[in-house]
């Protein structure tokens, strides 16, 4: 299998779909001539021309809304948010129009579009440039929300996203654009709504998504040294949500720790904990633990930023609590 970076995997999926389907176009800030702030779209302008790779002014609400209009007409636009932090400028368009127009038009209008870009923090961008928006976007019916962590899933889920007839919020692990992994050639679509068991285990279920999954795999290695067998679930898809894989894992391990970079209140981890207690209450041997970001806007200083995000020790402490160790 070819090895490529997360960034190349995304680009490969978009280029493949643009080759296959002329209705696919890309819009965003500096995605064409500049090649993309994170170089995800590098080279696409030369291949597909300015009518399909559209550099926009810095006006997220305007170009996201325009892309919704294009999608309603049967085009399949991909909107790049330079970072998801800027999507707040476009929230009215995403939620009030993209997520709802199918419903309030009784199915007469549809919005087959993808909004993608880097999500999450970790590179000292401080308060306004650091958010994990899975729970926020996951709240709204009408949107699909995914958060792949491997290059394999980045490509496979992007292929699926572009072919989706619904608006997709595609939250990329921005800190991982350079990480490499095996990516199958061709149309290896990864479906939405299917979690991935990143590592099998029997003693405790660790649940995460995005870059937290890599941390959970490292935690699982450390726990193995103490002869604790941890199962790691990569949710991949926030909405639709794979309840079955989660619940089956907890029925096996009887314990769960949910980890997320985002703030705890009204978050994905809260939803996961609720699903487990609703569907596997009798199987639980301990309350579900949540490990989340610190309840403060993201700080700048390196030491503060590190303290603001979940770390391996916090997860191990939580595992010890659910194992009553």
């Amino acid at each position: 299998m070819p090895v490529m970076t997360y960034r190349e995997a995304l680009r490969s999926a978009m280029a493949d779909e643009m080759e296959r389907d002329e209705s696919v176009v890309i819009l965003g800030e500096d995605i064409g001539v500049y090649g993309g702030t994170h170089l995800v779209t590098d080279g696409l302008l030369d291949r597909f021309g300015p009518k399909r790779v559209i550099d926009t002014p810095i006006a997220e609400g305007g170009f996201t809304g325009a892309a919704i209009g294009m999608a309603m007409m049967g085009m399949r636009p991909i909107v790049e948010m330079m970072t998801w932090n800027f999507s707040f400028q476009a929230v009215d368009q995403i939620i009030q129009n993209a997520a709802k127009v199918r419903y309030f038009s009784a199915g007469q209008a549809g919005v087959p579009m993808v909004i993608r870009g880097p999500n999450g923090g970790g590179v000292q961008l401080s308060a306004q440039h650091t958010h994990s928006l899975e729970g926020f976007y996951g709240h709204f019916p009408g949107l699909k929300v995914v958060s792949p962590v491997t290059p394999h899933d980045a490509k496979g889920m992007m292929l699926t996203a572009i072919r989706e007839p619904n608006p997709v919020i595609f939250l990329e692990a921005g800190a991982l654009y350079g990480t490499k992994g095996e990516v199958p050639e061709g149309e290896a679509l990864v479906p939405f709504g299917k979690a991935r068991i990143a590592r099998e285990g029997t003693d405790v279920t660790l649940v995460g998504y995005g870059r937290q999954v890599n941390m959970l795999l490292r935690v699982a290695d450390r726990l193995a040294e103490d002869e604790i067998s941890a199962e790691v679930i990569d949710l991949r898809s926030i909405r639709p949500f794979d309840e079955q894989t989660l619940v089956e894992s907890v029925r096996k391990t009887h314990r769960a720790v949910v980890v997320q970079e985002q703030w705890r209140w009204y978050s994905v981890a809260s939803e996961v904990a609720a699903i487990i207690q609703e569907q596997a209450f009798d199987d639980l041997d301990a309350p579900v633990e949540r490990v989340s970001g610190a309840e403060a806007p993201a700080p700048y200083a390196r030491n503060l930023e590190i303290a603001a995000f979940p770390n391996e020790q916090q997860v191990i402490d939580a595992v010890n609590r659910v194992l009553y160790r």
Binding site: G65, G69, P77, Q93, V101, F104, A109
Partner: peptide, 28 residues
């Protein structure tokens, strides 16, 4: 909405539909 007759809505947020119309025109 009556898309067969050309009506693509019908939007409730003041100003919010304007970008849609501009994108629709691009698509045409």
């Amino acid at each position: 909405f009556d898309v067969e007759n050309g009506l693509w809505g019908g939007y409730g947020i003041v100003g919010g539909h304007i970008p849609l119309g501009v994108g629709m025109a691009y698509a045409l």
